[in-house]
């Protein structure tokens, strides 16, 4: 908590505390629809934050994070469907496998000096490779998908993640809060400073005695493990998994938009990004419906245009600009 407090000045702390309180109380007044949108926002805060650690702090561009979401979701769901092993246990092998993928990609990439765009393509290649692979693995349903059956009798077994909407709301909120805290802690840790040194100038960082390879490996391991937990949540929230839906590149992109729009390498950037983009998508659905142009694709066209405009106008993200304008961080003048 202290690390988080340290990010902000007095006014920022008040705003943060009020926002958290409002979100905790929101389900008492909000409609089911609003609660589901907020749940989705929290999910994107969580996975966005995991990606932000690797890209925003350590400067390693991954465009294949859907891989870790998918592996996490698939492992936990398959264990539950086939062996009745609950997600609280299943999350461990899920994280382990996803982190092994992360380790393999990181080792290949960092050991052989694959950087920037090349590294990003390596991550895409792994995600795509796995997607097509999962299409042909019959144990998890292949291209036909894997489904977690809906059982009336199990509803309320929170220890098996079989809860109702409110349960998932608070679970997602908890995940998002933990991710923000972890980021705030890591950002101020020794490792966090090493990451930033590597991001800014790897040669200089190495000259200072920082083991850049180790730092980058830690980044991808932490990031992939965290993202896999998000995958477990996703699997048990939506109850259906398809390779095309889990591993596709558009999923990786969707996940990284929040942090980029909100502000890379900041603790609250991914939060702001998710709170901007997810409602934007929902609003676009509403607007296109109201205008009677709700053809498939209409919403996405506006979404793409918005992205282009945002990155054109505020390339460093909304949060740095917002926090300065509202005076939420730094010393007040």
């Amino acid at each position: 908590m202290k690390a988080l407090w340290g990010e902000m000045n007095g006014r920022g702390r008040v705003v943060l505390a009020v926002a958290v309180l409002l979100l905790l109380l929101a389900p008492t007044v909000a409609t089911r629809y609003l609660v589901s949108v907020l749940t989705l926002i929290f999910y994107f805060v969580y996975v966005g934050q995991a990606w932000n650690l690797m890209m925003g702090y350590a400067g390693q561009l991954s465009l294949g994070h859907a891989l870790y979401v998918g592996v996490g979701g698939y492992v936990s769901a398959a264990l539950w469907v086939h062996f009745g092993i609950g997600p609280w246990l299943g999350v461990f092998p899920a994280v382990l496998l996803a982190a092994s993928f992360g380790a393999a990609i990181g080792w290949l990439g960092f050991r052989f000096g694959i950087e920037g765009v090349y590294f990003a393509l390596l991550t895409i290649a792994f995600a795509e490779f796995t997607r097509i692979g999962f299409d042909h693995i019959d144990v998890v349903g292949g291209a036909g998908g894997l489904f977690i059956p809906y059982e009336e009798a199990r509803l309320g077994e929170w220890w098996n993640l079989r809860g109702g909407q409110l349960f998932f709301y608070y679970l997602a909120f908890g995940l998002a809060a933990i991710a923000v805290l972890v980021t705030a802690l890591l950002a101020r840790s020794r490792l966090g400073y090493q990451w930033r040194a590597v991001r800014e100038d790897e040669a200089a960082a190495r000259a200072l005695g920082i083991d850049a390879f180790r730092a980058k490996m830690k980044a991808i391991l932490i990031s992939s493990a965290m993202t896999a937990v998000g995958g477990v949540f996703y699997a048990f929230y939506y109850n259906s998994l398809f390779p095309a839906q889990m591993f596709e590149m558009s999923r990786s992109i969707e996940l990284i938009l929040g942090p980029i729009v909100g502000g890379l390498g900041t603790v609250f950037g991914p939060v702001i990004g998710a709170f901007l983009l997810t409602p934007l998508g929902e609003i676009l659905i509403g607007v296109t419906e109201a205008l009677g142009i709700n053809a498939p694709g209409a919403k996405a066209v506006f979404f793409g245009l918005t992205l282009m405009v945002i990155i054109y106008l505020v390339p460093t993200g909304v949060w740095p600009w917002l926090s300065k304008t509202l005076g939420l961080t730094g010393r007040r003048s």
């Binding site: 996405a300 066209v301 918005t306 282009m308």
Partner: peptide
């Protein structure tokens, strides 16, 4: 992001 926006 710019070009992905364009692609979308």
């Amino acid at each position: 992001i710019l070009l992905v926006g364009l692609a979308i």
